[in-house]
C-alpha cells in the first residue's frame, strides 16, 4: 500500500508542486506548440505518460545492476537515451505492424517519446535516488503536468491575443515567453527559494 502512496505522491508532486515543465523547462517547446493546436493534447499527453513510465521504470531497474549503476555521467546518458529509443522503437513496431497504425499516429508517438520531458525523468530520478514507485509516479505525473501546462498556456494566449495594451514589440512570441516565465515563477514558489536578494 505504501508503494501506491509513494507513486501517487510522486505524481502529484510532479504535476503541482514542482511542475516539470515550468520548474525545469522540460518539454517547453512541445508544450508551447501544442498550446497553439491543442486538438491532439490528450493523445500526446497519454503518449508522454506511457513513454515516461516505461523509460523511467526500465532505467531505474537498470540502475540496480551494479555495473550500470557505477557508470559515469556520459555513459549513463547513453544508456538512458538508448533505453528511450528502444522503448519507442518497440512501441512503434507494435503500432505499425501489429495494429496497423497510421503514419500520422506514429509520428505523434515519436514526437511525444523523443522529447526532453521524457528523457529528463530517468536522469532526474537517478540524481534524486528515487525508488521504482517514484519513477512510475513521476512518469504518470509528467503527462498530467503536460496537460496542465498546455491548458494554462493556451488560456493565456487567448487572453493575451485580445489584450490591446501589450506593447507592439512584445506581441506574439515575446509576450508568450514572458507569460510562461510568470507561470514558472508562480509554480516555483511552491518549492521555496529566494528570488530577489
Amino acid at each position: 500500500m505504501s508503494w501506491f502512496f509513494d507513486l501517487l505522491s510522486a505524481a502529484v508532486y510532479a504535476v503541482f508542486i514542482q511542475n516539470l515543465l515550468f520548474s525545469g523547462g522540460f518539454g517547453s517547446t512541445e508544450a508551447i506548440r501544442t498550446a497553439l493546436t491543442p486538438r491532439r493534447l490528450i493523445l500526446f499527453a497519454g503518449f508522454i505518460s506511457y513513454f515516461s513510465i516505461l523509460t523511467s521504470a526500465a532505467c531505474r531497474l537498470l540502475d540496480d545492476i551494479p555495473a550500470v549503476g557505477a557508470l559515469g555521467w556520459a555513459a549513463h546518458t547513453a544508456v538512458f537515451t538508448g533505453v528511450l529509443t528502444a522503448v519507442y522503437l518497440l512501441t512503434a513496431c507494435a503500432l505499425r505492424f501489429g495494429l496497423k497504425a497510421s503514419r500520422r499516429f506514429l509520428t505523434t508517438a515519436g514526437i511525444a517519446a523523443l522529447n526532453s520531458l521524457v528523457l529528463a525523468l530517468p536522469l532526474m530520478n537517478r540524481g534524486a535516488a528515487g525508488s521504482l514507485a517514484d519513477s512510475v509516479g513521476t512518469g504518470l505525473g509528467s503527462g498530467l503536468a503536460f496537460i496542465l501546462a498546455v491548458a494554462l498556456i493556451n488560456a493565456g494566449l487567448k487572453t493575451l491575443a485580445k489584450n490591446k495594451h501589450v506593447p507592439r514589440a512584445f506581441r506574439g512570441t515575446p509576450v508568450m515567453f514572458v507569460y510562461v516565465a510568470l507561470l514558472a515563477l508562480a509554480l516555483s514558489g511552491f518549492s521555496g527559494g529566494r528570488f530577489f536578494s
Binding site: G24, V175, M176, F177, A181, L182, A184, S188, G193
Partner: peptide
C-alpha cells in the same frame, strides 16, 4: 531558475 530563462528570452 528556468523562470529567469523564459523572462530573458521574452
Amino acid at each position: 531558475l528556468p523562470f529567469g530563462g523564459f523572462l530573458a528570452l521574452g
